[in-house]
Write a protein that binds this DNA or RNA. Structure first.
Length: 355
DNA sequence: TCTGGGGTCCTAGGACCC
DNA sequence: TCTGGGGTCCTAGGACCC
C-alpha cells in the first residue's frame, strides 16, 4: 500500500486558515512581486488550473496567477502533522517505510487476507486521517511497492486505486513511461526519440536496444515496465550524508571572499548541529562543498580525511580550503557544505587501531 | 520561465596496491 | 622498450526523488 498526502503543504495551510479554501494557494519561496528567487513547493488544485506546478520558478508562478495566495513554507508545522499521520499509518502496517514528508509505504500482506480487505483498511485509514488531521490522501494498493506508488498517483486528490496481480499490465501499459518511479525528464526525452511513449512501449522494447541507450538502468526500466519489483518495505533507514546549502539573494562577487567564507562557516555549523542531533551518533570522514555560478554552472569538490571526526572546525577548515579554487571565476549564486562517509565512533576506534 | 534545499544512487576515471 | 589483471578507494558529475 502506498499513501500520498494530497498537495500536502498547501492543504495544511488551508486547514490552518479555512478562508483560503477554493482559492489558488501556492507554497514556495518568497514572491517579492515576481522578483523572488526560488521555486514553488506545492500548489493546490485551484492553482494548478493556472498551470502552476511544483518545481516551477516562483516568478513564473506569479506571472501565471498574480492574484494567487503565495505563502512561504512552515516546515516545522508540516513535519509535526506528518508525524501524527505517519503514526496512524504505522499502527496499521506489518512493516512501514516513510518515503518523504508526505508519503509512506505499508506492507499489509500479513493482516489483509485479500485485496478487498486491504481496500477496506485503506478506507479506514483515509477516514482516520481526515477525522484527526482534516487532510485527504490518495492510496494505491498493489502486489508491490512500485505498482502501489503508480496506483496512488493515478487518482488525485482523495483517490483509492486497487491493482490486483492479474490486472498489473492492463493498468500500467497505457500510462506514459515517466509514470514509473525512476524515469525522469531526461530519460523521458530520450525514450521519446526511440519511439517509446507508454509503459507498454517500454515493456515491449528490445532489452538490448534499451541497454545500448541506458546502460544498466535499462534492466530496471524493463522490469519496472512489466510491473516487477521485489524490493521490500524497509523499516530501518540511516542517513548517509548531511548537507546544507544557500542561494544568495543576489549573486556574490568573487572578490567578496569574506561573505562566501562567512556563509560556509554558518552552513558548517548547521551541518554539524544536524549531525549531532541525529538519532545515531556519527563521525564523518568526507567533507564536500558545492558551488553554483551566476550562469547556473555547478561544481562539487570533496576531501576524505584519514580519520573520522565530529569536529566542526574540521568541516569549516576543509570546506574553505576546497572553496579557494572556485573563487577566481565568476559571480557565485550558491554555496553548499556536506559531510558524508559516516561511521559510528566505535568503528572509528577500530580503524584507528588497525592503523 | 530562469531555475530551492534536502537527499539517494550510479558511473567513469584515476591513483594505488599486489 | 612499451605494458596484465584483479582489487579498493576517492572524486566529480549527473539523474532522479520529495
Amino acid at each position: 500500500m502506498h499513501v500520498d498526502l494530497n498537495a500536502f503543504f498547501a492543504a495544511v495551510e488551508i486547514r490552518q486558515n479555512p478562508e483560503l479554501r477554493g482559492k489558488p494557494v501556492i507554497v514556495g519561496a518568497a514572491v517579492k512581486k515576481g522578483r523572488g528567487r526560488g521555486i514553488v513547493n506545492t500548489a493546490n488544485y485551484e492553482a494548478r488550473k493556472f498551470g502552476i506546478r511544483s518545481g516551477m520558478p516562483i516568478s513564473q508562478a506569479y506571472k501565471l496567477c498574480s492574484n494567487g495566495i503565495f505563502l512561504e513554507p512552515n516546515f516545522k508545522l508540516y513535519e509535526e502533522i506528518s508525524e501524527n499521520i505517519m503514526q496512524i499509518l504505522e499502527k496499521h502496517a506489518d512493516r512501514f517505510e516513510q518515503g518523504g514528508i508526505d508519503e509512506a509505504y505499508m506492507d499489509v500482506t500479513g493482516r489483509c487476507k485479500s485485496f478487498a480487505e486491504a481496500k477496506h483498511l485503506a478506507y479506514l485509514l483515509k477516514e482516520k486521517i481526515y477525522e484527526q488531521e482534516n487532510l485527504t490522501c490518495s492510496i494505491g494498493i498493489a502486489p508491490n511497492k512500485l505498482v502501489a506508488k503508480v496506483a496512488s498517483d493515478f487518482k488525485k486528490p482523495d483517490g483509492l486505486v486497487v491493482v490486483e496481480p492479474h490486472k498489473v499490465k492492463e493498468f500500467l501499459f497505457p500510462l506514459p513511461a515517466d509514470a514509473l518511479l525512476g524515469i525522469g525528464r531526461k530519460s523521458k526525452v530520450l525514450m521519446e526519440k526511440l519511439g517509446i511513449r507508454t509503459v507498454g512501449d517500454l515493456a515491449n522494447c528490445d532489452i538490448n536496444k534499451l541497454i545500448e541507450y541506458f546502460g544498466q538502468r535499462a534492466i530496471y526500466y524493463h522490469q519496472a515496465a512489466h510491473g516487477i519489483d521485489d524490493s521490500g518495505v524497509c523499516e530501518e533507514w540511516t542517513q548517509k550524508s548531511f548537507s546544507r546549502e544557500h542561494t544568495f539573494e543576489r549573486d556574490v562577487d568573487m572578490n567578496d571572499k569574506q561573505r562566501i567564507f562567512d556563509t560556509i562557516d554558518a552552513l558548517a555549523e548547521q551541518v554539524h548541529k544536524d549531525l549531532l542531533t541525529y538519532k545515531i551518533k556519527f563521525n564523518f570522514r568526507t567533507v564536500s562543498i558545492k558551488v553554483r555560478y551566476k550562469n547556473f554552472e555547478t561544481h562539487t569538490a570533496a576531501k576524505t580525511l584519514l580519520t573520522a571526526t565530529d569536529d566542526v572546525c574540521v568541516i569549516k577548515r576543509t570546506a574553505k580550503d576546497l572553496m579557494r579554487y572556485f573563487l577566481q571565476k565568476d559571480k557565485i549564486r550558491l554555496v553548499g557544505v556536506k559531510v558524508s562517509h559516516l561511521v559510528k565512533p566505535k568503528e572509528t576506534a577500530i580503524k584507528l587501531l588497525k592503523l
